[in-house]
Design a protein around this nucleic acid. Sequence first.
DNA 1: ATAACCTACAGAGGGCGTCC
DNA 2: GGACGCCCTCTGTAGGTTAT
Length: 417
Amino acid sequence: MIEKSKENQLLKAYITKHNDMQGVIKTNSGRHCYHIRFKLSGSLTDYQKYFKPLNIMVKESDHSCSSKSPTYILENTVQIDSIPKNTQLYWVNNEVENSKTGSTLFATKDLSPDKLNVTAKTYTIDELIADVTKKVQLKYDKCVATELIRLLNLASQKKDIIKIDPILTFTTEDLKVISKDFGEILAAIWIMKNSNFSKVIFPKNSNEKLIDFYAEKVSINYPISVKSGKGGKVLLQNLIDALNRRTRKHSKKISEEPIYQIIQIVNKNSAKEQMVIIHQYLQTKMIEDLATILKKPIELIDLEYIKNWSNSKTIEELKELLSDWWKEYSQPTKFNIQDQERLVISPLGEAIKYTLNNDPKLKESLNCIAKQVALLQVNVDINTKTMRFQKSFFKNAKFEFGWPGYSSGNKLGFRMV
DNA sequence: ATAACCTACAGAGGGCGTCC
DNA sequence: GGACGCCCTCTGTAGGTTAT
């Protein structure tokens, strides 16, 4: 394992500078270990060729910095300025064709409306199919483009379950990415056909998080959200942003909602901090019990204290101290960790959604707000043989608090159930 | 420029109810 | 009583943004 050092920091800066000149864009990711991350296509021989002018050689790495993309070691063969000879730095090549897992055809978001350049413009079904067809033909080779175009045309049918015959040649992993990103475009085509919308418009990606597109009927734009597979959670903040965007005549003021204080806590505090503070605000039994274990008054417990406390003990000691508490509320399963506060914060977060969902006032308040935010959620699920669509009206749906979990780093959210 | 933080996207896999 | 599928909990990645 190569640790971060003054020397490889310099090496990273040196490579970054060269990449910038070559137009190779760096991807920011500081996870797991100190490394540099950028895309380079080809094989090891091609990489050697790329790095040769820099007097850097590429080696296979026995340590992996990413489970999706391969890790290599970059090493300078001569001294470069103040970088000593043989300084090593991990490099993650996130070029999609080299992915170890997942799709090897489509990188994350490559098939999204934003990347396909169809945002901020209104489309009828035919216009959308025509434009996306053109974009896909430019971007992918004939085989891939043909299959994607088949999907576009198939989505324009008046049924929920659409048979794909002959079956698709994509792998299951490709199909996940297609469902997730291309699904937004397919859903737009499907909903126009199946709910008599005349046009759709995709907002610019940066603008709206919860709304994937707007569909037009009799000159009114209705917000629509798309989920693929089992669907993810949505941040509470997105709810508020979406509501502030469109003022409704009969909607109550958000600040009068019981959920308002929770939202404030979620907004003002980091993902980890809020898990402590919400428990304190709601005065849960769980935080009382934790206070007993920590031997610290509830109001004096904060993230900093939990960090210091948990990281001053061994994992075995923590298991002994916390096992009853975990058994009562939420059981973590990952123990091979550096950030030992996880063993306290993760259960607090996993448990808080139940506390919130079991509070009728809060849950009703969440539902009241969420129902106003969009017209429809369209679920898309694609496998090699079928494409399934399902629509749910927000006003008839039920919502719950949910949390994507500690390792995601996300704040408290909600989802349609 | 870098490290740390944040967010969108979820998936993996085990428990558990149900069917044969 | 084993197979199967659903559902829930816990775990995860890629890529963008912010603070220093």
